[in-house]
Simulated assay, not measured.
Amino acid sequence: MLLRVVSGTMSMLKDRLETDLRTAMKARDELVTSTLRMALAAVRNAEVAGDQARELGEDEVQAVLTREAKKRREAATAFADAGRAEQAERERAEEGVLTGYLPSQLSDEELTGIVAQALTGVDTSGRGAMGQAMKAAQGAVAGRAEGGRVAAEVRRQLGL
């Protein structure tokens, strides 16, 4: 691991993924093993993307896992719509494994309160209102709710 030597710091979440992968391999848990391998590959791809390789921070690893979980959810829906129940179930199971590494999602009431609080210091007039509001809301939510839910709540509170 050249990246570890260069930066010296490593995400605790990434450490946990690697430790859990070794445990799953020893237990011969095929689902968890393949899911964590896929997740770690996505994290490593994100680390080497761009001009210079770097180690991801905790929030960045969490964002990668959130993206991977969303991919599994969307794939499960697509498989189910195509009548491929077995593949859809596999995707849901993989999403379940990944969700275990993510913070719990906010309830609708919690999301409403956090978005309302985030919008208090934001100029919500003019053309850029939605963008500024989303930036403030996403920062306050910090990955504890999907972007679509946050956007819907921001639109509702802005009256758009």
Rank of each mutant, 00 (worst) to 15 (best):
R73N: 10
K26C: 04
E109A: 15
Y101D: 03
M130T: 03
G8L: 07
L13F: 13
G126T: 06
Q117P: 01
A53P: 14
L17R: 12
E110K: 11
S104C: 09
R127C: 13
L65I: 10
E60T: 08
G143F: 00
R90P: 07
E91W: 02
T120H: 07
L31I: 08
L21A: 02
G100L: 13
L106N: 04
E47T: 10
R144L: 05
R44Y: 15
S34W: 09
G128S: 14
D20L: 05
R72W: 13
A76Y: 08
T9M: 15
E95N: 12
N45D: 15
S107P: 02
A39K: 07
E60M: 03
G96E: 05
E86W: 06
L13H: 03
G57I: 10
R54V: 00
Q117G: 09
E74D: 15
R54T: 02
A85C: 11
R37D: 04
R73I: 09
V122E: 09
T66R: 07
V64W: 08
R72A: 15
V6C: 09
Q132V: 08
R155D: 00
A129D: 08
L56Y: 05
E91C: 12
P103G: 08
G147D: 01
T124H: 05
A42D: 15
V64L: 14
G147Y: 06
A39N: 02
A27F: 05
A152P: 01
D29T: 12
P103K: 11
A118V: 00
E146S: 04
D51K: 08
Q157W: 00
M134Y: 06
R4W: 10
R67G: 13
F79E: 13
R16K: 15
D123K: 15
R149S: 11
T99A: 14
M1P: 13
T33D: 02
G83D: 01
M130H: 05
G139E: 04
A85F: 07
D20W: 10
G100H: 08
V97R: 01
E47N: 10
E94N: 05
Q157V: 01
V64N: 08
V6D: 07
M10V: 08
G128W: 09
T124Q: 07
L40K: 12
L102S: 09
A53Y: 13
S7L: 15
R84I: 02
E95G: 12
D29G: 12
A118W: 02
V48P: 11
L119R: 06
A75G: 07
L21R: 04
